[in-house]
Simulated assay, not measured.
Amino acid sequence: MQSPTPPRSAPTGAPTSTPGAVEVRRSTRRRRTVTAYRQDGRTVVLIPASFSRSEERSWVDRMVAKLETRESRGRRRSGTDDELMVRARALSEAHLGGVLPSSVRWVDNQHRRWGSCTPADGTIRLSSRLRGMPEYVVDYVLVHELAHLLEPAHDAAFWALVGRYPRAERALGYLEGVEARTGIDPA
């Protein structure tokens, strides 16, 4: 992976951005904490306005490295399409009576959905945006899509099936938080 473009600082409260790079946002309300996340192909680092340029550079480097490590772990955890199928089988046996899809795979073209299922042919696709998220969140989306093999509509019977996954509510809350932060509302 290429190293990020060196960050530029902005006046207090104004963001800086270089396409595909690092955006540093200074805040007068922030005193000590530093936060970083990925958004629209760039890394956003939130720092206190009082930080010097050298503190900014140090924190940006540290936070970019932390995000890369977290994402790397998530990619290893998320695995291949074959590993997704193994997970789907295990989740189905544990929570949905063993219904099996014909295929499960990662896709890069789902920007407004976390996953999709075509009950007619039994295929399930998960958005690659899920890579790097906690395992229980990926598992929730798998259970959600597997439930569509039994109940195609989002009706009460469908949600009862999804509710068999013990961390469903927590995972749904996590995804709603991601959607709120990114402004994406999957249909």
Score class of each variant (00 low, 15 high):
R105Y: 02
S116T: 06
G173S: 10
A147N: 06
S102D: 05
P6A: 13
S103E: 13
R30T: 14
A171F: 03
V141C: 02
L67R: 06
C117I: 01
E151A: 09
R105P: 04
D40W: 05
S92R: 07
G20H: 07
E71P: 02
T182D: 13
V60E: 10
P186A: 11
E68R: 15
R112P: 00
L130D: 00
I184F: 03
V34P: 11
I184A: 12
Q110M: 12
Y140R: 10
E83N: 04
G97W: 00
P119I: 09
Y136V: 02
R170C: 00
Y140M: 07
W106T: 04
E176V: 11
E23F: 02
L100W: 01
R112C: 00
V34H: 08
R125H: 10
H95V: 07
P15D: 12
R77P: 00
A21K: 02
I47H: 04
S58Q: 13
E23H: 04
R77Q: 13
S54A: 15
R73E: 13
I124K: 07
W106Y: 04
A180T: 11
I124D: 00
E55Q: 15
R167Y: 02
R170D: 10
A156R: 14
L172K: 15
L149D: 02
L142Y: 01
A187Y: 06
F51W: 14
V64Q: 07
M133N: 07
H154G: 11
